[in-house]
């Protein structure tokens, strides 16, 4: 397994734990004067998740899989 893939798996597990957001469970403070902090946390989390996937795309992209897919077999010639 490539080190980048291993790191991605570890970070994914950390993100899944952070998703629980135990810090703001009963906090009703407002962010920017209109968004409850529990909602703001998870909206920010969505942006972090997108950034995480962008980094994964950069460093753990399955290049070999793409080359392998191009070697279509005779039965596939459904393409």
């Amino acid at each position: 397994m490539k080190p980048a893939v291993l790191i991605a798996i570890v970070v994914f597990i950390v993100l899944a734990i952070l998703h629980q957001d135990v810090w703001n469970w009963d906090n009703a403070d407002l962010v920017f004067g209109f968004m409850p902090i529990g909602l703001a946390y998870h909206a920010g989390y969505s942006i972090v998740a997108a950034s995480f996937w962008a980094i994964v795309m950069k460093f753990a992209w399955p290049t070999r899989l793409e080359e392998w897919a191009d070697e279509t077999d005779d039965a596939a010639t459904n393409n």
Partner: peptide, 21 residues
């Protein structure tokens, strides 16, 4: 997003290689 990356891309590759629909 994890499903698209881990399941989707690999199924796309197998589908393309073997002509699955």
């Amino acid at each position: 997003a994890a499903c698209f990356l881990v399941i989707g891309i690999r199924l796309w590759a197998i589908g393309k290689r073997h002509g699955y629909v």
